[in-house]
Design a protein around this nucleic acid. Structure first.
Lengths: 337, 337
DNA sequence: TTCTTCACCGCAAAGCTTTGCAATAAGAGA
DNA sequence: TCTCTTATTGCAAAGCTTTGCGGTGAAGAA
């Protein structure tokens, strides 16, 4: 229902002057006499006038809203990035319109379309795990609608991206495992079309080489990050004639699943098998064994993504990829010295 | 920068007809001839025309946006509720504008003001832990802007609310503790002005009575839910001449803190002390000991809140309080039989 | 042949703000 | 007293959509 909001016209009528005079008075335009300016501003304050963003938007052709699409809304990783985006956006007078792809390509496409209908000024996106086509993003690019990717990225020649140094992170994991005497390191990766999968696999191969470990293709697995498939993979890995003595995963969830499975089998962590996660979910320190993991500067990722958004908005050609550093946080799950 | 979006005018010009004809043709108005209707619809589809929500909003005096304010964005409890709200809102063609109060009254007031500036059609709110004044909400009510509260509520004579049956939930906790032989049950509650605190305290007193347990005021504590203060309270409780043998808290976080502290002191859970949380955070099952807790139908809370919003929007006087049921999920932290 | 009646389509206003330009008035200079 | 500035203020258009109402032409009726 909601009563009509106060407009310039209301103020103008009350003061018996024209709308344009009110408009100018409110922004201290020199053309307007001091008394009128004062009277208008006083009344506006009293009545708590706020300009109508719809009218402004129509005029300026912008909504001051950024669409943000994430794979899910409920993990700390994304929530925290969103908080970062929101913070920076707010400082620029922008709002965020949030959408979740639920890790589903169709829903992602739908979200892009919905946000477009809402006339967001642009989007900041982390693609879903299923995203292997990019038409929906190319459409944005063609229409010169600012777009920024973070974490899971694509089209990086056209779009500014914020990522972490995945290769280096994995290198650190391998070195850490190696220093703790683990030799057969399994990597449960994600879908191969995802940037985070491929870059971490690179790091995996490099890290093995750097630490004088042999690459065994059987220990490198690509899953869909789902619990069921992950359990399947764990079972297969454990029943290998020469099973792994260490696991790390594309994210913490995968490794928590490993932890649960190993607990069921009464396999000792970190003595028999070492574990390292990826992302440092909020609850990593509450788990039965505190999890070694790669912390991400999530808040900073969000802020940076928002920053890039505003740069992109002013420079259509801009397409830098910003790489942020992670940190290996060593906890119980991998320390057996 | 973004190119200008396609408008009715563009279609009209291309077809050499008037804007109003295009507008009517798009909605199959009987006044428009079949051929023109077809031509217009074909072109609209081809060019991917979407109506401009700013213009519509200006005309209809509504933005189809709901402001949602939560204490934080990063706990699973709120994220999941938000997902529920978003789902229902989307089904009604509405978007969500998200804001966090960060558990801070000033930020909450600011958020209300910001959302108002953005001209949301109404708001769905869970108040911050500091919220003990309600002027900012009364202002909305006066202006007949639809408002719904959930979980932590207030002004329930004026505003529709969605809550859980806190009294019953706490009753269940007490009975469960009692059945497991715990006798001195401490409750670390939240700020006393919060609805969830007072209703759970009611349940606490009732539950004790129902189970023939004596109420000891020393075991009922109100904290600010912060880790530091919680630790302080735990220490005080444990150094009591007759310390508690069971804890439950206003939320899971508080109890996770207890769990950590007890672990440090090498106190055995659940043998020496039993623990029960509240809310069933995502990671309750990953903790060193799986946590007994009260699960909330979070998604349903969100959906219901959104439903009430749309009812309220059509019925200014509406102010029902919907009570949803929780469930006690018994896990390791409190089972010592 | 002339009037009536549909069938169709376009004009214009409303919703709100900004801003270029026109207009008015007063004051100053001649 | 008359013309020219200068200082203020208002008009109107643009941005986009919806919708009441008026308008046009053709076909049917008398």
């Amino acid at each position: 229902m909601a009563k009509r909001h106060l407009s310039l016209k209301d103020l103008a009528t009350e003061l018996n002057i024209s709308i344009s005079t009110v408009s100018r008075a409110l922004k201290n335009h020199p053309d307007i006499s001091p008394e009128i300016t004062r009277k208008v501003q006083d009344l506006a304050l009293l009545r708590n006038y706020v300009p109508n963003p719809l009218a402004m938007g129509l005029l300026k052709q912008e909504t001051k809203m950024i669409g943000v699409i994430v794979p899910d809304l409920v993990t700390h990783f994304y929530s925290s990035i969103i908080a970062g985006i929101e913070e920076y956006a707010k400082s620029q007078g922008y709002f965020i319109l949030l959408a979740s792809s639920y890790e589903n390509l169709q829903k992602e496409i739908e979200s892009v379309s919905n946000l477009l209908k809402a006339r967001v000024d642009g989007m900041i996106v982390c693609v879903s795990k299923e995203t292997n086509r990019f038409d929906h993003f190319l459409q944005l690019i063609e229409n010169e609608i600012p777009l920024v990717f973070f974490d899971r990225v694509c089209l990086s020649e056209l779009v500014p991206c914020v990522v972490v140094d995945n290769k280096e992170a994995v290198n650190q994991i391998i070195s850490h495992f190696s220093q703790n005497g683990y030799k057969r390191i399994a990597f449960i990766s994600g879908p191969s079309h995802l940037s985070i999968s491929s870059s971490r696999i690179e790091g995996y191969l490099e890290g093995l080489k750097n630490n004088g470990l042999k690459f065994d293709p059987e220990l490198l697995r690509s899953g869909n990050m789902g619990t069921e498939e992950t359990i399947q993979i764990i079972e297969e890995l454990l029943s290998l004639p020469n099973p792994p003595d260490a696991f790390f995963g594309i994210n913490d969830m995968v490794i928590f699943t490993v932890m649960k499975e190993l607990k069921k089998l009464r396999i000792k962590i970190p003595d028999e098998i070492g574990l390292v996660g990826f992302a440092d979910e909020f609850h990593a320190t509450f788990s039965s064994l505190e999890l070694t993991t790669i912390t991400h500067p999530t808040h900073e990722i969000g802020v940076k993504a928002a920053e890039l958004f505003f740069i992109k908005k002013e420079n259509p050609g801009y397409a830098e990829t910003v790489v942020l550093q992670t940190q290996l946080v060593i906890r119980e799950s991998s320390s057996r010295n």
